[in-house]
Design a protein around this nucleic acid. Sequence first.
DNA 1: CATATATAGTTACCTAGGTAACTAATTTTC
DNA 2: GAAAATTAGTTACCTAGGTAACTATATATG
Lengths: 140, 140
Amino acid sequence: MEAFFHQYLQFSRTFTKKINEHIADLDLYQSQWSIVYYLQKNKAATLVEISNYFQVEKPTITRTVNRLEDRQLIEKVASADKRERRIQLTEKGLDVYDQASAVIDAFEKQLVEEIPKDDLEITFRTIQRLLFKINKEESV
Amino acid sequence: MEAFFHQYLQFSRTFTKKINEHIADLDLYQSQWSIVYYLQKNKAATLVEISNYFQVEKPTITRTVNRLEDRQLIEKVASADKRERRIQLTEKGLDVYDQASAVIDAFEKQLVEEIPKDDLEITFRTIQRLLFKINKEESV
DNA sequence: CATATATAGTTACCTAGGTAACTAATTTTC
DNA sequence: GAAAATTAGTTACCTAGGTAACTATATATG
């Protein structure tokens, strides 16, 4: 079973690295892209919503969002709750989304193109089950 | 297809986090564990051998190996080639291996126990194919 | 054999994940 | 309605991935 998880992490590292290479022209990184992607799909969101969606801790999200804000890819949205930091894509952010989206879609499609649909579905479902199981684990 | 890779990375993050929690008592981290594991299986190795095996860049390996050396879990092995830094586990390192190995084996087994063997095999093979494909990608 | 090239490893610095401890605002509870 | 508890986000600092540029040694080549 060691080999299974070893290989799993191997692909994860390589995949992230390649995504980074593909969007380097846009001065974007994979983790930044994932937030841009989320904001395009969800229009506006708080940091906690993003944190929950990706199951990534808040400080990590804070930092990445700050970088997107520095680059003016996102902007603040008014909110009744003063604790919240609600954000959305700017015009520039949408533009970057469009460009990155094309590159990444092509990359991902090309990656899976020769793999049988059934195998991909089983793989997806298996990872889903692993994810469900690992999330049920009590925190040690 | 976005969902596929999104979920893939999700599990990867959570898995690493849980491994870290499980071996925190041993003052070990997942990446340190992976090198300890490699050295137990391969007796002695150079940093380049480790770097190639995990497909992780040399500076990352240097740093992690330094931490293992600081903790006296590894030691230098004589080498004819003066450029090389050949290392192996110390007694203490072997002891930590035994302890971590037990914890991690149990964790991984429990994670996959309810998943059909066939599904795991297909998943393994599919990731293997993805890995092969992504490694063939010319560097952008 | 002297020079050029390749290889092993390190240093400096970037992004990205984590935890712990904190502030400020909101919600619950008494 | 005041005090307590919860929630949103930040700061500081840890490990872990990356690239670029470097040193030192070993190997190839003319």
